[in-house]
Design a protein around this nucleic acid. Structure first.
Lengths: 165, 165
DNA sequence: TTAATTGCGGATAATATATATCCTAATTAA
DNA sequence: TTAATTAGGATATATATTATCCGCAATTAA
């Protein structure tokens, strides 16, 4: 019933990657350090993002992760779907077919109203998250950051990112 | 990440209770039989509905369950909340405060955009379910039932419900 | 070529949650 | 009282989540 915390981690990780200059990359060690989370488990989330095509990976020395496409085109739903999958969270087991007064196949041409309502609810949930691009997350975080912290973040990126020109 | 199947069971159980004449009740054995689910586990869901004030229980001989209020005023969200609770499914652990570039308290007067987006998504999810009263579920199920099945359901209720006049 | 770095995938384990059942106590109609 | 019936706790099992480690493949620099 709960959402894995990997979703939160991955969202913040993507927000950091969105700060990188084009072509630059961050290793998982650096990302884990920046976010303050255990590296091995974060690696799992990053692999999922990679499989979903949201980030590009570069192996070997000076390798790391970078966004696969423009931050404007990556939504929180993309990240959630990559980590949690797209299977419906409500599972209809067709209870109406059970028991002494169960419905026949002919009486069940469409999902019952209960299943339909949950499908609809999940649909609006999905659309709400899909309407939030990474750029919005980055802009919101930047808006509340002090000038000093912005400076520190820029310095940290200069020091830890690879592929900088 | 998934929703317990108890929600589906409870929703269908409430839909059955909504068919009862005023004052009539059904035992959990009868309900479990009607729905085709294991009685002991269904009992847990019914207890949760009772604690939430959605159903009334009558112990002792000829006891059972009945809706606590008009079916028009019980929504699928009421039932979901009774079974799964109202705690947010997305848990914000304030990752922005972590690491070498973590935000200070002063920079975090409000939830970050990630947490806010998930809160908003859960809100629209909740509202979608809250907009579906039991009466709509019952009407939808009745609409697809054949006349013969409606007859069988009425007969079954006559035979199994207690407190009939 | 060799060595160092780094992500990938599989295996593993600890913990938490969901699923399912049973038993005893409390309650109530007959 | 007696039989029926729910409440609540204890318990067992299955599944999911959280977390870590290790060997392999890929890449780069010396």
């Amino acid at each position: 019933m709960k959402i894995g915390k990997g979703v939160e981690w991955a969202a913040h990780a993507c927000a950091v990657l969105a700060l990188l200059p084009p072509g630059a990359a961050l290793s998982r060690e650096c990302l884990a350090d920046y976010l303050g989370v255990p590296p091995p488990y974060l690696a799992k989330q990053l692999q999922a993002l990679s499989r979903a095509g949201l980030v590009l990976t570069q192996r070997g020395a000076a390798g790391g992760y970078q966004l696969a496409r423009d931050a404007e085109t990556i939504s929180l739903w993309d990240i959630t779907a990559a980590l949690e999958g797209t299977a419906p969270r409500f599972r209809c087991t067709e209870i109406r077919r059970n028991g002494p007064c169960g419905a026949s196949s002919a009486e069940c041409p469409a999902p019952c109203d209960i299943a339909a309502a949950f499908q609809q609810a999940e649909s609006v949930y999905r659309e709400t998250l899909a309407a939030v691009p990474l750029t919005q997350v980055v802009a919101g975080a930047t808006a509340v950051a002090t000038d000093g912290r912005k400076q520190r973040i820029g310095d940290w990126i200069q020091q830890n990112a690879s592929g900088l020109s």
